[in-house]
Amino acid sequence: MEDAKQLEAFEAKIAAGQKIEPKDWMPEAYRKQLVRMMSQHAHSEIVGMLPEGNWITRAPSLRRKAILLAKVQDEAGHGLYLYSAVETLGVDRTELLKQLHNGTAKYSSIFNYPTLSWADIGAIGWLVDGAAIMNQTALARGSYGPYSRAMVRICKEESFHNRQGYEIMMTLAQGTPEQKALAQDALNRWWWPAVMMLGPSDDQSPNTDQLMRWKVKMESNDAIRERFIDRTVPQAEFIGLSVPDKDMKFNKETGHYTHGPINWDEFFQVIKGNGPCNANRLKARADADKNGAWVREAAMAYAAKQMKEKEVA
């Protein structure tokens, strides 16, 4: 059978560490899984603009305002870049946005939590971009060419965001007692959501051998989570803050931290749409789309007129 041969060649290519490119043959399950992952990622970038964009107008110094603007601009760029990468798999942005607005597409659970103080901007850069990097450096080794290249490029900027976020937290933690309290409160609220954003634990989400073999998934959620925690807990201690987990302990034998129980019920509630901001975030995106419809129509009408004029000339 032709398919079996193609599949064999496809898997051999991946096993040899080569990338799959848009024009190459690929199994339907591979394509579907990638569209799902990449579009979720793209949606996360643009929904993620909302909780942070919130604070641009309130940033406490002009320097911080500029840095935050640049960060949110980067995130929008990531979204654009990823939507283009999904388009290489034959699904266009309009279709993907429709799925986002009608609630059938998912995006990262983390953006359904509210940003309540300036310190949250620090916590997001440090923890959320930090967790995203752990996930994305793994994905950069994935088999699909356009996605893997997108990850390499995006990760560089995410590291920058991560450092800036940590720097905000450090400045607050070393500031007045009121500022330090702000930082600790932000860490308390963002810690668990950040730990959870890396996905359900392995026993709840068995990684199919197939996705691993196809290098769509590179590492298990728990392995990525462990790396995130190992890196972040000492960073918190270094600036005099503590993660809100009384069971967090360094295990000398394994060289890793062990953490307390994770409230997966909360995670699944947020995924289901019951997080504190799900409705707001979706409404904001859908409103922007609705309010922008006449602008997009005008741009298309104008472009069509210009085309006609060119043809006549």
């Binding site: 643009i46 603009m49 909302l50 964009g53 641009i56 603007l69 949110v72 601009q73 929008a76 760029g77 979204g79 654009l80 939507y83 942005r93 904001a284 409103d287 922007a288 309010n291 922008g292 419809a293 602008v295 997009r296 741009a299």
Partner: peptide, 11 residues
């Protein structure tokens, strides 16, 4: 920010 008519315009 985040409310533009199209992503390119947001940027």
């Amino acid at each position: 920010c985040g409310h533009g008519p199209i992503l390119e315009e947001d940027i």
